[in-house]
Simulated assay, not measured.
Amino acid sequence: MAIALTAVFFFLLYLPIAMVALFSFDSQKSLTVFKGFSLRWYRAFFSDHVLIGSLGMSLKVSLVATVGSVALGAALAMGLVRARGRLGSYAGLIMLVPLITPEIVTGVASLLLFKGLGITLSTGTVMVSEVTFSISYVTVILRSRVAALNPEVEEAAMDLGATRWQSLRLVTFPALLPAILASAVLVFALVFDDFVLAYFTTGVDPQPLAVRIYSAIRFGVQPTINAVGTLMLAGSIGLIALALAIPRLFGRGGGLDVLSGE
């Protein structure tokens, strides 16, 4: 009985996704009857300059958000682990708040903040919002890895003549590299697919790809959207798989054990 219920659950969960992928290869402009395989809608997507521009913006925002959140999240993780007293515990709890806050609340709050400061919504506002939102994910992943490091190794490096910066660069950073790469790939995938925060903080044009798709389907679902959705799904699955594989390539303790349950 449990197996049957599980099978029904996954069938209902993935059936709409499978239908989107299937009709992205339909040779005709139909969303109900599949009439044959074709790459027509993929060619239409790559020849659509508006959608390609939105894709370029999404990639740009994802890259900036990844670099910014990883840099700030790594520093925050180091500070939370190495902080003494209750400050580190309290800061750690505050850092978890963005993870449990509904994203629509964060989006509305970001919109009100930018409007209150008189900042025009643009690509820059999307980048700032995504960096701020992603820091917590990076911190959660890296914090467990930083806590597992032995501070005596850094102290030994400094006893041998290394400066504090050299010990971080030559000892700590290589140990954190698997977790850093894994968190970077994960954040890139999350930001690229993000809709809610991007919707509230983006300008008129160009818009992130997720927002552009939403704007397009309000006037009717086109088969090109199925092709775009399938490409985004394939890219996201690949990035998530890479994020989970990186720690294993470097050995256990890469940092995503927190997410994978290991």
Rank of each mutant, 00 (worst) to 15 (best):
A2W: 09
A2Q: 08
I3Y: 10
A4T: 06
T6G: 15
A7V: 12
A7S: 09
A7E: 01
L12V: 12
L13F: 11
L15Y: 12
I17Q: 09
A18I: 15
A21L: 15
Q28C: 03
L31D: 07
L31W: 04
V33I: 14
Y42T: 03
F45K: 03
S47N: 10
D48Q: 05
H49T: 13
H49G: 02
I52A: 10
G53W: 02
S54F: 04
L55P: 01
M57Y: 12
V61W: 07
L63H: 05
L63Y: 05
L63A: 15
A65T: 08
G73N: 06
A74D: 00
L76K: 00
L80K: 01
R82P: 00
R82G: 00
R84Y: 00
R84W: 00
R84M: 01
Y90V: 15
L93S: 07
I94Q: 01
M95T: 03
I100S: 07
I100H: 05
T101W: 05
T101M: 15
T106S: 15
L112P: 01
L113K: 09
F114H: 12
F114M: 13
K115C: 02
G116D: 11
G118K: 13
G118N: 11
G118R: 13
S122E: 05
T123R: 14
T123G: 14
G124N: 12
V128I: 15
V131E: 06
S134M: 14
I135N: 08
Y137A: 05
V138E: 08
V140Y: 01
I141Y: 05
L142I: 08
R143D: 00
S144N: 14
V146Y: 04
A148E: 14
A148D: 14
N150Q: 06
P151N: 03
E154S: 11
E154H: 03
L160A: 07
L160V: 00
G161H: 08
G161A: 09
T163A: 06
R164M: 03
W165R: 10
Q166I: 02
L168G: 11
R169D: 00
V171M: 08
T172R: 09
F173W: 13
F173G: 00
F173D: 00
L176C: 04
V185F: 14
A189R: 13
A189M: 14
L190I: 08
L190G: 01
V191M: 10
F192P: 07
F192K: 12
F192W: 13
D194C: 10
D194Y: 04
V196W: 05
A198S: 15
G203K: 13
G203I: 09
P206M: 09
P206R: 11
P206S: 08
Q207A: 12
P208V: 06
P208W: 05
L209W: 04
L209K: 08
I213R: 07
Y214N: 07
I217F: 04
G220P: 06
Q222A: 11
P223S: 04
P223T: 02
T224C: 01
N226A: 08
A227F: 05
V228E: 03
G229C: 06
L231G: 01
M232T: 00
G235K: 05
S236R: 09
I237V: 13
I237S: 01
L239C: 11
L239K: 06
A241F: 10
A243E: 03
L244K: 12
A245D: 04
P247T: 03
R252G: 09
G254V: 02
G255W: 06
L256K: 09
L256P: 04
D257L: 08
L259W: 10
L259P: 03
L259Y: 07
E262S: 08
E262V: 08
